[in-house]
Design a protein around this nucleic acid. Structure first.
Lengths: 214, 214
DNA sequence: GAATAATAGGGTGTTTTTCCTTTAAGACCT
DNA sequence: AGGTCTTAAAGGAAAAACACCCTATTATTC
């Protein structure tokens, strides 16, 4: 049995080199090369001998992140299996990665043996998921994902971004070319939708749900 | 020359195992054991043969974090050299770790070769710092650290935490057993200190400066 | 004894929030 | 083509909360 080639895409060099030596210690796997981000991988893949069986992909990277990169691979190199590797435990992120085509999602606190198991499973069965991730996905389905995640309209998002500044509602109205009264309407609708009682509640919601970044 | 013993304290098992195999690949270093957090290390050290030359210490850990653990080592095992290992680039954190007695501070995106260099330097010279960290420290000194970082009093921090909730000022006054008028005072003092215009400004400040966590 | 910090009050204008109503434009249905 | 529904956009009025003045009492500290 010949060794399967692995590529690691991860911006923290220490981690990627460390994982690399870990993977090389497994019997039937071999690290081809390391990339710091998706862009670097895309360039590398242009050379046919650089095409691996599996990519171990970090989700959060500069320049071209894990989700974009995985989507690119799905389109252009459908035979490459992607295993996501992340500290992110947020449902949203995990689901995006899986939708993008990842065959597995490992949290960075998994043990060496699980990594090896995951690599083997992906080669043999095409996918691998820890119980954690499976449970999370089931929960997600149960709570009717699309509905549970409150969907805000474009104009509401624009409004809520202004809410997170020191502008008064009157000033927000000016910026959005609307009457202050209309702004009242947006505000009250959001208070109800998001179950908050005042502007502070909106700000906290916006930050928790990453509508604004700090 | 016999190999120096290393202990790795890091909550993400994949990373710690990976770093472990990296360190073991260096000629004159040997990993004694791994710990998931400071508490585990403290217990381990009670057995004399478990005392290493160097501890590679993550900063952010559950139960007993890198800063606390490093302080403990400085007091009880002053001969153990600590090298901090973190993704955190914040001045504050770095300074706290160095004050606690760390002999080096590596960002997790360093390369394998730098890690080896750091280990050797710490054994031979007693300390190691990358240019990044040195520069950062110099900047810190230049900008007169103590003044630049606005210092909030305990009671102000307590207040600002309440500000980031949906409570009214009247309700905050009740919770803090103060008159609403005193609360006005706290608020206005913070408006001035932090150069903000209203409550939203306080909330944004609190989140940016990690006075509250979300 | 003077300076400082924490606490608190009086008065006032502005902003936010709530409640209730209205108009105009599009979508949908038959 | 006409009737019905929905939604975005607004208005009036009033109460609650917020923000901004300026002053006063204590206790601590120097």
């Amino acid at each position: 049995m010949e060794a399967h080639n692995i590529v690691i895409v991860e911006d923290h060099m220490l981690l990627s080199q460390a994982i690399s030596s870990l993977v090389n210690s497994f019997d039937n796997f071999n690290v081809l090369y390391l990339c710091k981000h998706g862009k670097e991988l895309v360039t590398k893949l242009k050379t046919p001998k650089n095409i691996p069986a599996i990519v171990l992909m970090d989700v959060n990277m500069p320049i071209m992140n894990g989700i974009e990169t995985t989507e690119y691979l799905k389109k252009n190199y459908p035979d490459i299996k992607v295993i996501a590797l992340s500290v992110e435990e947020e449902e949203d992120t995990i689901i995006k990665m899986l939708k993008a085509g990842a065959k597995g999602y490992l949290l960075k606190d998994v043990e060496k043996s699980i990594l090896e198991e995951a690599l083997n499973e992906v080669i043999n069965n095409g996918y691998y998921h820890t119980k954690d991730i499976s449970n999370l996905l089931i929960n997600t389905l149960n709570e009717d994902y699309k509905d549970s995640k409150i969907q805000l309209k474009d104009r509401e998002i624009e409004f809520i971004k202004h809410v997170c500044t020191e502008l008064t509602y009157k000033e927000i109205a000016d910026k959005m070319f609307l009457s202050p009264k209309t702004i009242d309407g947006y505000r009250d609708a959001l208070f109800f939708k998001l179950q908050v009682k005042n502007r502070i509640g909106l700000v906290i919601y916006a930050i928790k749900n990453k509508i604004i970044k700090l």
